[in-house]
């Protein structure tokens, strides 16, 4: 019953939904500490590894970006289904972020405006390869259950490092001044 936990590397998946990859860039900003992290975690599905789908069950999924289209929903659901913990990484995942500033507009009008041709007609692409837009950009916790939130646009490398080290050592992550930022 009380056998000690065998130290093993945690499997981490990451993904960027409707974001700018800034949070991923910030993740890389932990610089040489990446080596330290690499000793503690294995990366599964992630733009960093170029693994397209979760190869096995993960411990942590770091999700950047809000949910703006059907594909985002599929990716988020896959991560939720295959991870023990889902972390909303950055402003867009936490509250929709700047993309959510379209939320008071009708998505149809947005499309018509964006795909207006010089002659005044509209040519909205209908390629099935393109993910369809949702009516709004949603924070990820409105689509799936989310365990932890790490705000910031992006959260700094130091903030991400603090968060990850708390998580890896079994502490409830605590982000305070000056690491806690919404911008």
């Amino acid at each position: 019953m009380n056998a000690p936990l065998t130290p093993r590397k945690l499997r981490v998946a990451t993904a960027s939904l409707s974001g700018c990859f800034g949070c991923h860039m910030s993740f890389l900003d932990i610089d040489e500490r990446l080596l330290e992290l690499a000793a503690l975690v294995d990366f599964d599905r992630s733009p960093i590894t170029d693994i397209k789908h979760c190869s096995q069950r993960c411990d942590v999924a770091l999700v950047e970006g809000g949910v703006c289209n059907a594909e985002n929903v599929h990716v988020l659901r896959e991560l939720r289904a295959n991870s023990k913990m889902v972390v909303a990484l950055g402003a867009c995942a936490v509250n929709g972020g700047l993309p959510a500033q379209r939320n008071h507009l009708d998505v149809g009008q947005c499309l018509q405006q964006v795909y207006r041709t010089p002659d005044g007609s509209t040519a909205i692409p209908n390629d099935p390869e393109l993910p369809l837009l949702l009516d709004k950009v949603y924070p990820i916790n409105e689509i799936v259950r989310v365990d932890y939130f790490l705000p910031g646009c992006p959260p700094s490398g130091d903030t991400i490092w603090k968060f990850m080290t708390d998580l890896l050592t079994g502490r409830t992550p605590r982000i305070e001044h000056p690491l806690l930022k919404f911008d």
């Binding site: 909303a88 936490v94 509250n95 929709g96 959510a100 939320n103 008071h104 709004k136 924070p139 916790n141 409105e142 989310v146 932890y148 939130f149 790490l150 705000p151 605590r174 982000i175 305070e176 001044h177 806690l180 930022k181 919404f182």
Partner: peptide
């Protein structure tokens, strides 16, 4: 920041 609010938590009204 001071009260360590990490998420707005509730459904956004937008």
């Amino acid at each position: 920041y001071d009260l360590e609010m990490l998420t707005p938590h509730f459904r956004h009204a937008f």
